[in-house]
Simulated assay, not measured.
Amino acid sequence: MKLSKEDADLFFRLMWELQFFVKEQLGMLPEVRDTASYKEGCSFEEKAQVRDALYDNPQFIRKFTQENPSGLSAEELAIVSGWQRFLRGSFFIERLLKKYAVFIPMEGGDNQVYGVVGLYQELDEIVHPSQLPTAVQAVLLPFKGKIIYDGMFRGYNVYFGGNYTADLKERYLVAKQNNRIVESLDAKPARKPAKPKVLHDWQPQIRSLQEQAKDLKAGNAYPALYAPTFALVKASLDFAEGATDAKPDLDALYKLLNKVDREMRKAFKVLYREES
């Protein structure tokens, strides 16, 4: 996913105005006298120096919005003001989805996972899927309810082993399963939690199956595989009952799942011994 051309144009117009302001405040590039000259005449390296100075001196974001030297509208000033919540650091781009690219912080105490959209280009036009996961230095910014990067990132030439790749995938899957992929850095007013959805109650059906499963018994007259199979069915139903409870006990679920695992391993052993 990427911004519309209109929004991408707006982002870069605001960013060039802000960077030019910072350049002026710090006395950088004195020969550059206006925003147009900064935008069109400065090299990538020169802009990168100003960009880094901006994030080294974030107080200039507030000063820019207070002084408003560019005559921005209230809506535009609000966008720039939101950039005070920027996230600067090293990230892994773990995967590219239609909705966004998945950014995972490389270090520090930030255990979040971020969904980041592109600017003029989809991020899969910049980073090929075959290169994933890849490590980048980036700055993430809020923009109209989305998370974007600020137009520059630097890549690392790093090789990831299978274990590290698997760990990143697990971090993404944990965040996805628990609905904590961060898709916006905008400040949000406190609100009441959403009313929980009414789910179908599977408990009656599962308990009915548990009652029926009590009749699953296998003595010596039956093939050896019957007994562990029936035990696995009963253990699985017990786990299903606990998992579908309105307030599942996670500790109890781990114990029930361990029992399922034990019964499954017994079934594997019996099946392995079976001669065709």
Rank of each mutant, 00 (worst) to 15 (best):
E107I: 02
E275Y: 07
V80K: 04
D245K: 12
L96C: 03
E40C: 00
G108P: 04
G71M: 08
Y100W: 09
F230Q: 10
I147W: 01
G161L: 04
E122R: 13
E125G: 03
M152H: 12
E24N: 13
I147D: 02
I104C: 04
M106Q: 11
M264L: 09
S4K: 11
K47S: 12
P196L: 01
P228E: 01
A53K: 15
L185Q: 04
W202S: 09
E24G: 13
L119I: 04
P142R: 04
Q59D: 07
L97N: 03
R88L: 13
L185R: 03
A175W: 09
L199C: 02
L96H: 05
H128M: 10
F20H: 14
N157G: 06
V32P: 09
A194D: 14
F239Y: 15
Q112R: 15
E107L: 03
I61D: 00
P30N: 10
N163C: 00
Q59P: 00
V182R: 13
L168D: 07
A78Y: 03
P189E: 12
I104Y: 03
Y164M: 09
D167Y: 08
N179K: 15
R13G: 01
M106I: 01
A267H: 06
Q25Y: 01
E275T: 14
N220T: 12
S208K: 12
K146V: 13
